[in-house]
Design a protein around this nucleic acid. Structure first.
Lengths: 222, 222
DNA sequence: GTCTATACACCGATAGAC
DNA sequence: GTCTATCGGTGTATAGAC
């Protein structure tokens, strides 16, 4: 990689899911300079939130001038698109489970990963940052497409676990897709609530209820 | 779009907000001028989204100058706080059910109200606006407090329905709070997904699954 | 109460030196 | 590749006439 200026077309979005499918970490080739900018963007987001994110702020975090950022990215919009791609690469690989495990444990792993019972301050800010970004999907097609992909990927992960559990007799023969969508929506709603309200106890209640729901829904009747 | 302060689309937006104003628990007296500003803010939000909301835009919708807005509100922050209060007054009363009805019907009413199966374009924009506003709760204490109140109110509404159903023997003796939190999180998650992704079928799947969940959870075993 | 005009900060983005 | 300097635009907010 020569470190040439990024022309800014989001032409890589398509490979994303397919590369994920074979379980590999789909690292696109980030220049060292680009990666530094991504990390500076991340820090600026944590510190100022999406509404307070500006090229100046990113440049401050980067320790360089604004113009140097425009050497690597043609516009703020392009930079944000790249950042979203970068962030999603990291996130999605962290949810993967090792197949072949006990389906109950796999489900538990996914739920705990997406909706941890206890979050330290840093994790909370990360989640808040994600939610802040996702809020922009309301008015940005590019953002919405990215988050569509994320949800699609997460739903597929849950669906596959349930499906495998059904096939090897661990679970009852339920509609795997319906269960997956339910679990995903519940998790998303609880996570959303966690960072946009102060109802601390709600997440714990949802976690309990979710376990109960999965048990009722999936455990074979004796 | 003409330069006119009001166009047809914006008028219908007014209806959406004002029609909810019957029987409300509005504990504040809005002057006519203030209410006009609130409605202009609402139209500007629908049209430009939260990120594109400015005093200029509101003034345009209002058909008056920026300065006239500052006569009524000392700052944009104050104005937005007032708007949130105004909008929540309207919203909360719209979810109320007539007590004494069949608990099944009451639950169905709440779910359909919060997560309608079919949404026309306008309703979608209203939901998108709410999500856009709520995203700001991540970085604004005032916003977060308001949405905490909303969720608290909604959870209480659901909890009370379940509780009454238990007491009159319609429902099984479950943990009403746990069920309420589960339902609320699922609804919020599905609504959130609806406006921040393009997974159209997901909402329908969640609705089906939610009905199934409530039936399994609440219907007395015979 | 509403207007016009304006102050001042910051934004995204560019030009051109080095 | 990074810098300084700057452009044009928009934002919030205010001053002062009417």
């Amino acid at each position: 990689m020569t470190g040439e200026p990024n022309d800014g077309c989001a032409d890589r979005a398509d490979d994303e899911l397919t590369e994920m499918a074979d379980g590999g970490t789909s690292d696109r080739d980030w220049t060292e300079a680009e990666e530094e900018i991504m990390l500076a963007t991340y820090r600026a987001l944590l510190e100022h939130g999406y509404a307070g994110l500006s090229i100046s702020r990113i440049a401050d975090e980067l320790g360089k001038s604004k113009a140097s950022i425009y050497y690597h990215y043609d516009s703020k919009e392009v930079l944000l698109g790249a950042f979203l791609e970068y962030a999603i690469d990291q996130f999605e690989s962290s949810v993967q489970t090792e197949t072949g495990e006990d389906p109950w444990a796999e489900l538990e792993h996914v739920v705990e990963k997406l909706l941890p019972l206890r979050v330290d301050e840093e994790k909370r800010r990360v989640q808040a940052t994600v939610i802040g970004l996702r809020g922009q999907a309301v008015t940005s097609d590019a953002f919405r497409e990215q988050f569509t992909e994320i949800d699609e990927q997460l739903a597929a992960t849950i669906r596959d676990i349930v499906q495998r559990g059904i096939e090897n007799g661990t679970f009852r023969d339920v509609d795997a897709d319906r269960v997956a969508e339910h679990v995903l929506a519940t998790i998303n709603g609880a996570m959303y609530g966690r960072v946009t309200s102060d109802r601390e106890t709600a997440v714990a209640a949802v976690r309990v209820s979710l376990s109960s729901y999965l048990d009722t829904e999936l455990r074979p009747q004796s």
